[in-house]
Computed example of a mutant assay.
Amino acid sequence: MTQTTQHAHYMLADKRPSIKEPIEVSPLVGNWVNTKSDTNYLVRVVLTEQDDHLVFQGYGANEPSPIDWGKVEAVPYAVGTSLTAGGFHAFYKLDGIETHLVANQKLGILVIQSYTRYVDGSGRTDHFAREFFHR
């Protein structure tokens, strides 16, 4: 007798088969530069694949040179029913500042939304940004 495992689903996209193959992250890997040269947010990001993980390194706008945020693991997400990454999310916690990054890539443009929250008691207003990057 064959037993079928039932998985929870709340939309049609949840009815995906269980596949042990990794998501192909190569469409995301590379050096990405903000299309807006006078940004106040991320000026550049580097995505690499290390030990079968997607790694994100951000560089925040600052004068005279950008601030290296360091490297964090990014979680890739497949496009539709493929096994090719079309987006990711990552999280930074830096000295009382928490930033969630959510991104998607299409047609050679990487769109990154950042959600920044201040947990340092400074009273600064939490904020959201969406910026566009190219290779």
Rank of each mutant, 00 (worst) to 15 (best):
residue 117 R to T: 08
residue 20 K to Y: 12
residue 55 V to R: 15
residue 134 H to Y: 09
residue 7 H to N: 10
residue 9 H to S: 08
residue 107 L to R: 15
residue 9 H to C: 03
residue 33 V to A: 02
residue 39 T to H: 02
residue 39 T to V: 08
residue 47 L to S: 06
residue 42 L to H: 01
residue 17 P to I: 07
residue 3 Q to I: 08
residue 4 T to S: 03
residue 120 D to G: 06
residue 102 V to P: 00
residue 119 V to W: 01
residue 47 L to N: 03
residue 84 T to R: 09
residue 20 K to C: 03
residue 108 G to A: 06
residue 11 M to D: 08
residue 45 V to W: 03
residue 77 Y to P: 00
residue 109 I to M: 12
residue 107 L to N: 14
residue 31 N to K: 14
residue 40 N to V: 07
residue 20 K to E: 13
residue 94 L to A: 05
residue 22 P to N: 12
residue 54 L to E: 09
residue 96 G to R: 14
residue 131 E to G: 00
residue 41 Y to F: 03
residue 59 Y to S: 01
residue 116 T to G: 05
residue 6 Q to P: 00
residue 45 V to E: 04
residue 119 V to Y: 06
residue 35 T to L: 13
residue 52 D to E: 14
residue 83 L to K: 14
residue 52 D to T: 04
residue 44 R to Q: 11
residue 109 I to Q: 15
residue 38 D to W: 07
residue 113 Q to T: 13
residue 4 T to V: 12
residue 42 L to V: 00
residue 58 G to L: 07
residue 107 L to D: 10
residue 66 P to L: 01
residue 84 T to K: 12
residue 20 K to L: 13
residue 23 I to F: 03
residue 115 Y to T: 06
residue 124 R to P: 00
residue 31 N to E: 11
residue 53 H to W: 11
residue 109 I to Y: 14
residue 28 L to I: 05
residue 134 H to K: 14
residue 85 A to R: 04
residue 124 R to T: 01
residue 21 E to W: 14
residue 78 A to W: 05
residue 100 H to F: 14
residue 132 F to M: 08
residue 135 R to Q: 07
residue 111 V to M: 08
